[in-house]
């Protein structure tokens, strides 16, 4: 059989592809920043046993890490409205990403915090630093630096995972792919191009995160 590949039928839609890429990156960016803030809060609650938050975060982490992102997304988008919480598809997608990354980064950052040598904290206490100062100036920066590679990997995993947000009609890159292949009937070419775009995005996001880590956390992060 002779199938003639036609990638130009995909490239005609480059505007839709670029718009989808932009939205995928936006979703990942907002999700990463807010998710890491949530994860830091969870990590310190767990590592320093701040009751009752340590218990709450422990349950939250187990619930999220043992259920699929797609189901979390459906629960938020389709399930929560029956409790009176109305959201558009973007709010739901962002909330799902933040909740998902928050759970994973809680465990990642906790490992970094727990690796802080006791002497560091005792030295800071002897300088009369408050708990808050100790956390933000002594504990957190080296903890983040230690686990930064794991954080980078997790953010990339989350970025790739956002492709299922097309299922609640959030118009990100996979949604663009679905739209394009429904127009040009070139499903294979379209998904091939979009898969390659995701691959480049993954490489790019990883690079940007590695550089960000170097900038923010100093030479300790590789």
């Amino acid at each position: 059989m002779a199938y003639a590949f036609d990638f130009s039928a995909v490239l005609e839609y480059r505007e839709a592809l670029l718009a989808g890429t932009g939205r995928t990156l936006m979703l990942t960016g907002i999700g990463a920043v807010a998710g890491l803030v949530l994860g830091t809060a969870g990590a310190v609650s767990r590592a320093w046993r701040l009751a009752p938050f340590d218990r709450i975060f422990a349950v939250y982490v187990e619930l999220i890490r043992n259920t699929p992102f797609l189901v979390q997304l459906f629960f938020i988008f389709f399930g929560l409205p029956s409790l009176g919480v109305q959201m558009d598809e973007w709010q739901a997608a962002i909330l799902a990403v933040v909740i998902n990354l928050g759970a994973y980064s809680t465990e990642i950052i906790r490992a970094g915090i727990e690796a802080t040598p006791r002497g560091q904290i005792e030295a800071a206490q002897s300088l009369a630093m408050t708990r808050r100062q100790i956390f933000f100036h002594v504990v957190l920066p080296p903890a983040l630096a230690k686990v930064w590679p794991a954080i980078c990997s997790q953010v990339v995993i989350v970025m790739l995972g956002t492709s299922v947000c097309s299922q609640i009609a959030a118009e990100e890159l996979t949604f663009a792919a679905n739209f394009i292949q429904s127009r040009n009937f070139r499903a294979f070419e379209t998904y091939f191009v979009v898969t390659a775009m995701y691959f480049l995005l993954a490489v790019g996001v990883r690079q940007v995160l590695a550089l960000t880590g170097q900038r923010l956390l100093g030479r300790r992060s590789k």
Binding site: L160, G161, A177, F188, T195
Partner: peptide, 19 residues
């Protein structure tokens, strides 16, 4: 480095290309 969903789409639609 690619989404599982895209891998599934490529297998699903790619296999119909080869008949």
């Amino acid at each position: 480095g690619t989404p599982l969903l895209m891998q599934l789409f490529i297998i699903f639609f790619g296999s119909s290309l080869i008949g």
